[in-house]
Design a protein around this nucleic acid. Sequence first.
DNA 1: CGTGCACTTGACAGCTGTCAATGCCGGTGG
DNA 2: CCACCGGCATTGACAGCTGTCAAGTGCACG
Lengths: 253, 253
Amino acid sequence: MRAVPDDSSPLVFSQARLAEFRSPSPAELEIFSSLAGPVQQIARNRTIRREGDAPQSVYLLLDGWALSSMTLADGGRQILKVHLPGDILGTPSMALDKAAETLTALTPVKLRSVSLSAFGSLFTRAPHMAALMFLSVQQERVMLMDRLCSIGRTSAECRLADFLVHLHSRLNVIQPGIGPRFEHPLTQEQIGDVIGLTAVHVNRVFRTLEDKKLILRDGHMIELLDMPALRKLSGVPSRTLAQDLSWLPKPLP
Amino acid sequence: MRAVPDDSSPLVFSQARLAEFRSPSPAELEIFSSLAGPVQQIARNRTIRREGDAPQSVYLLLDGWALSSMTLADGGRQILKVHLPGDILGTPSMALDKAAETLTALTPVKLRSVSLSAFGSLFTRAPHMAALMFLSVQQERVMLMDRLCSIGRTSAECRLADFLVHLHSRLNVIQPGIGPRFEHPLTQEQIGDVIGLTAVHVNRVFRTLEDKKLILRDGHMIELLDMPALRKLSGVPSRTLAQDLSWLPKPLP
DNA sequence: CGTGCACTTGACAGCTGTCAATGCCGGTGG
DNA sequence: CCACCGGCATTGACAGCTGTCAAGTGCACG
């Protein structure tokens, strides 16, 4: 990991991700930005942090795709989340001795580290921002719960449909109006590790969805042809954020 | 739900759960306790809050077992967590419009509600406590991640072993020294809904574990005969909490 | 022009779900 | 007290989904 001196903009999250996130005030953003280290670049397939390492910081993903994954005793791998720009990586392990998840750059990645002590200071310096973080973690938890349902109780076809719809909707947050087509850097094996299938079976199910005219593929480009049908297939309801967050502490001026 | 006037003790968490939780100071506990409503009793099999309801509070589980679950489009159910005394229920939906999970009393239950606005005040009144809550949610997230691995990448036998070991270790926190035997109120169908199997198959796998002399059953009593073997079967590593949390904000005096 | 990785496809096996029947037990009503 | 009943546990038979193994293709890269 090497520091990149050029980037002086207060790149913390993508603006779009912020909107989803209930707009911290500019003062809070400024605080948060000041907590983060310099922009670092990481090459494709490089490990950002390995499971078992002592967690010392969390990471703001500015650009590129990353994975968080766990390795099982038998050598199997489960991908816990496909991270997009605007995500904060590594927070699940903050309370642990040894990190639970491995963080890997899926594409060339730009990120900034935030030390735990810097993060901790948010709770006294910007309580409203800390509360937003808290809610953000709860959202992540709901996403994990939805995936638990998907993997635990639905067929391979449903799981892949859910994965594609969900990924597409997350991309749409950071690139509004992308339409039904998008590109991704994942191999079929990696997709299998996300939704709990083997690479071979992922391939079969992709074929099925194509045959049903639900999607169209060209290399790593995917087009969702029939979104309503895909959503219905996925089985997991779409979540909407609360409108009324007046119970939160007041934001900084 | 009816209020129970008697219970005047500051029952917030079980002491054991607190220790796991990095000891908030007495002053903080006092604050937290003052935020919660009166003790309520709920009968077995009653719904505490249904998915889709607007989340208005969270719940401190004082006594009894509870479930949080989601219902899928096809009528299937996934149990997201088996809650024990000391757990806080309903927090995942705090950021949502409509609750994602249904909360159900598995046994007769005692709980206290905490309104969202009361909870929110923690962030300004007791930042250290709020940070502990934040970490607690991260731990829950890691547990979900572990379960995702278990359900996504391991066989039925591994999943059941993992479930039993994990449940036993959680019981051991609130009843230290329970030994290898414990009682639980779950039906095999409910266990299946936790680990993503059908009731019939849960039964088959119970039989397998018995035949292998790994466990012993008598009604709803379970004895773990060979903990090391069960742990090894489960495949998911055990997590240890961080020793050094000096990066947190300072506790109230 | 090789080499390796990812994708595809087929054949087959095995795990898990489905369906169905039986037994057990506690609760309920007569 | 006893018969009935519903929920749960158990077991067998069978089907189907998904994993495993293997072979072939195409493409990027050295």
